[in-house]
Simulated assay, not measured.
Amino acid sequence: MKKKAATTKNIQPLVKKAAQVATVIDVVGDMPGGGKLLKLTGKSAGKAFPVLETTSNVMEYSNGDISGQRLSYRSVGVGTSIVVGAEVGSIFPGYGSAAGAVVGGIFGTAELLYDQFNQYVKPVMQQKVNNFSNQLKFAR
């Protein structure tokens, strides 16, 4: 039986899931009171997450699933979460990963809201503006 060649389409879900798992391990491993193994695993996961997330985003861009603007936005989100996590972690040891994860969550939520706005709200608003504009044109 011939093995199926690895492509970005069948690797991408695995990379995305690994990035999510890495985030959870990183946050849990960074909490005070965790064991040495958990802390070591958390540090490794914390370093792996940005690489996995960026890899997944680049794969999506390469497949044409996302635009260059979306790739840039996501890259800024990953970078911002790294910086915030590092800064918070340097001031409050043990909480940097959680802070970075929160920032990443905010970027993800903002992206989701933007998508929902463009899909549902923007067309309705555009229609209302067009109707109003047409009424002004034909009222003369």
Rank of each mutant, 00 (worst) to 15 (best):
47 K>L: 00
53 E>H: 03
45 A>D: 09
39 K>T: 08
48 A>W: 11
35 G>H: 05
62 S>F: 08
44 S>F: 14
62 S>G: 08
46 G>V: 01
56 S>M: 03
48 A>M: 05
48 A>D: 03
63 N>C: 08
57 N>T: 08
44 S>G: 14
51 V>R: 04
53 E>Y: 13
46 G>T: 07
57 N>K: 11
43 K>D: 05
39 K>R: 06
57 N>M: 03
56 S>N: 13
44 S>N: 11
56 S>W: 12
61 Y>M: 06
44 S>K: 09
42 G>C: 06
65 D>G: 10
38 L>A: 15
49 F>K: 15
45 A>T: 14
66 I>W: 05
52 L>N: 05
38 L>M: 14
46 G>W: 09
48 A>E: 04
35 G>C: 02
49 F>C: 12
42 G>F: 05
50 P>E: 04
54 T>A: 00
52 L>Y: 04
46 G>M: 12
41 T>S: 15
57 N>I: 04
51 V>P: 01
50 P>A: 06
42 G>I: 02
46 G>F: 02
54 T>L: 14
56 S>V: 07
65 D>T: 07
51 V>L: 02
35 G>N: 06
38 L>E: 07
49 F>G: 10
62 S>E: 00
65 D>I: 08
61 Y>L: 15
51 V>Y: 01
56 S>P: 02
52 L>Q: 06
53 E>W: 12
38 L>S: 11
52 L>D: 05
64 G>V: 08
38 L>P: 05
40 L>N: 09
39 K>Q: 11
48 A>R: 07
63 N>K: 08
45 A>L: 06
40 L>T: 06
36 K>D: 01
43 K>Q: 13
53 E>C: 01
42 G>L: 03
